[in-house]
């Protein structure tokens, strides 16, 4: 297990470097620059040139990247061009929001997906068809639209949950929960669809296996067969799907954060992109890459726990 963790961590280094280079190059290719964003279009050429010089935007691209990398290796992600605050400070404040959102959505997606998948496989019939239909709907309905509908129904027409905003857990746990309910449902519903489908197919596949027949012949209780054997075996591929779903949720968080005006990393990525704030974009890319690596590692560990064959 230790070797597995070590292997992942080593693999993460070139990945983070590669993503940071790619982000830097792509962000630099976006037309416009930070100096113009800061000064607006009314600034005269002298002002513009002076600020470009101050921001070191005239340096060659690789020099700029080198400066960033040198600082980043010492734990300094630089200063945000827009806010002039340390990038690390900005990310720290927003990471908790995105993690809360994705964790909640993962929970919703997993519970709903597994529950519906198992119910569909075991009961079949109308329920099975309903699950299939819901799965398709979950995939087809844009989360943006779903979010707006939920806000209209459960925040504006029936003021049960807040329409926008985020309350930190430390400030009020109840309000924190309330502020996350609608965005978590918005994000989680879409994620539950592939899990439900995989779970249903997995359980049906396992139920057809010989060992289930043998267990039944030995008089083992059906509940025990399902929970101790079938679900465990069916869960192995679901763990992989869940990993992919979680990674997808980080991407979906950008939209959810926009609709519900949550101060997360997704919203920061949007404003940093439009403001040509490359240090912030770099920081976000690094954090997201590390999160993806982390999620994959957890999935791998979970996979290993479920399937001893992959532990070696």
């Amino acid at each position: 297990m230790r070797r597995l963790v070590l292997r992942w961590l080593i693999a993460a280094i070139p990945l983070v470097l590669g993503v940071s280079v790619l982000t830097f190059v792509l962000a630099s290719l976006v037309p416009g620059d930070a100096a113009r964003t800061i000064l607006g279009v009314n600034a005269n050429p002298q002002q513009y040139a002076a600020l470009r010089d101050q921001l070191r935007l005239n340096d060659p691209l690789w020099t700029q990247y080198g400066h960033w990398l040198g600082r980043a290796l010492h734990g300094d992600l630089g200063l945000s061009i827009q806010s002039a605050d340390p990038v690390g400070h900005e990310l720290k404040g927003r990471l908790a929001v995105t993690l809360s959102l994705v964790a909640g959505a993962t929970l919703v997606a997993a519970v709903l997906g597994v529950g519906l998948g198992v119910a569909s496989a075991l009961r079949g019939g109308i329920l099975g068809r309903c699950v299939d239909t819901l799965s398709l709907l979950g995939l087809a309905v844009p989360s943006y639209w779903l979010g707006l509908v939920l806000v209209t129904l459960l925040a504006v027409k029936a003021p049960i949950f807040p329409a926008t905003g985020y309350v930190p857990f430390g400030q009020s746990p109840v309000q924190w929960l309330e502020s996350l309910v609608l965005p978590v449902i918005t994000l989680g519903l879409g994620g539950s669809a592939p899990i439900a489908k995989q779970m249903r197919d997995g359980v049906l596949g396992e139920l057809d296996r010989d060992y289930v027949l043998v267990l039944r012949a030995r008089g083992i209780a059906e509940r025990s067969i399902i929970f101790k054997h079938v679900l465990r075996n069916a869960a192995t591929p679901v763990a992989s799907v869940l990993g992919l779903v979680i990674i997808g949720l980080f991407g979906g968080a950008v939209l959810a954060e926009t609709v519900f005006v949550l101060p997360g990393l997704g919203g920061l990525a949007v404003t940093a992109t439009s403001g040509h704030d490359i240090p912030v974009l770099q920081g976000i890319a690094v954090v997201f890459t590390l999160l993806v690596v982390g999620v994959n590692l957890i999935v791998e560990l979970g996979y290993a726990a479920l399937n001893p064959k992959v532990r070696t």
């Binding site: 807040p162 329409a163 926008t164």
Partner: peptide
């Protein structure tokens, strides 16, 4: 930034 989101925030 979103006009609909800001209107919802105002309404609520």
């Amino acid at each position: 930034a979103n006009p609909q989101a800001v209107l919802n925030a105002l309404k609520t």
